[in-house]
Nucleic acid binder design. Structure first.
Lengths: 202, 202
DNA sequence: GTCTATAGAAGGATAGAC
DNA sequence: GTCTATCCTTCTATAGAC
């Protein structure tokens, strides 16, 4: 047949992105073929090129949309600038956990497939990611200034906290031993302790 | 020629592992071809199969050797059981940082390429990794018991701390803004604060 | 122990029919 | 908008010469 009955370009474009995201997350960008993606979408391989110029663009778009979405969502969820650094930090931790757990595949891709980006695409992605890191770094710096936090280095601490939180995506499962609310409380406590700077004994 | 002058099977075997490690870390397992590895070793692709049955075994061996080395090194570096939980934790943090930074490529592979392992190989690797996680979990549990640490969940906290520390490998560079000793101090402080459990204000 | 050559499969991407 | 067919490249792995 020349054209699938009930075919819909808009839907196919959306399906393509979803299928690619799922497959890249599961097997890795380099290990997934355009034919595999096409099969999951339910079209032939050639048809994919109506929606993406090539495989690389598909990866880049997935990452960029994810990071743009992350930054945009924070802008709508963050507390007013008048909020205390501690309140803002707690909001950030909660936001980061929920946003990332809801998008485990995209997160995985955005962290794991940087190597497979062309240099110019990597530069763009890195810049967007850096803007997100600066969100947390700014919160920590604000709390350092007010004396609410005891932090020896805001940049390193922001890296450390983001790595800690994002690490959740590697082991979290629904129906696990603890509820998400319980898990979030554990992490809130760890982060709060980390920035509250107990004195080292040794 | 039939055989390279000065060829040495032992050296080639070592070179093969080193070349594969470097390339897998840089480009990803699936994106690296046996031809690329062979070129880096300085032999033809066919010759590699004298030293590994296939590409999968190469990946598995790299991971397994890394994790076995990690566990073995900890056994020689850990403090006696008579040491305090806090001292043992500090030792663990220092050990983990240094061991991982010295082996950035292996660490990257061991964390990133789990998806590309065959199921039976994944099971073996996961079990070895779990034994390492239990090292930290045990230290935290000991400190919880003595009252030195205020930890709501030892398992989650061990995951969180390992993720935080391992995250260093993604950004650490020699000749960076801070010396390794300074960085280690920042992380020691963050970990100590996290397990010392400041009370949450909210 | 390493080479050359190649089998056999699979990959990304394009052309043209419908 | 999608399909079929295909070009051309690259891949893993093996066979056999030296």
């Amino acid at each position: 047949m020349a054209r699938k009955t009930g075919s819909d370009g808009k839907k196919t474009a959306t399906d393509l992105r979803a299928a690619a995201t799922a497959l890249f997350a599961k097997h890795g960008f380099a290990a997934v073929s355009m034919r595999q993606i096409a099969q999951k979408v339910g079209v032939q391989a050639g048809a994919l090129y109506l929606y993406t110029p090539n495989k690389q663009a598909l990866l880049f778009d997935i990452m960029q949309q994810h990071l743009d979405g992350l930054l945009g969502a924070w802008e709508t969820e963050k507390l007013p600038d008048s909020a205390t650094p501690l309140a803002q930090l707690q909001r950030f931790v909660s936001f980061h956990i929920h946003y990332h757990l809801d998008r485990a595949d995209e997160v995985f891709i955005a962290y794991m497939e940087l190597r497979n980006l062309l240099p110019e695409n990597l530069a763009t992605i890195s810049e967007t990611r850096r803007r997100y890191e600066l969100v947390l770094e700014g919160i920590l710096a604000a709390g350092q200034k007010t004396g609410d936090f005891q932090i020896s280095d805001c940049k390193l601490s922001s890296y450390a906290i983001i790595a800690m939180l994002t690490g959740m995506t590697t082991w979290y499962r629904d129906q696990g031993r603890l509820s998400l609310a319980e898990i979030e409380q554990v992490y809130q406590g760890l982060v709060y302790g980390a920035v509250s700077g107990a004195k080292t004994k040794s």
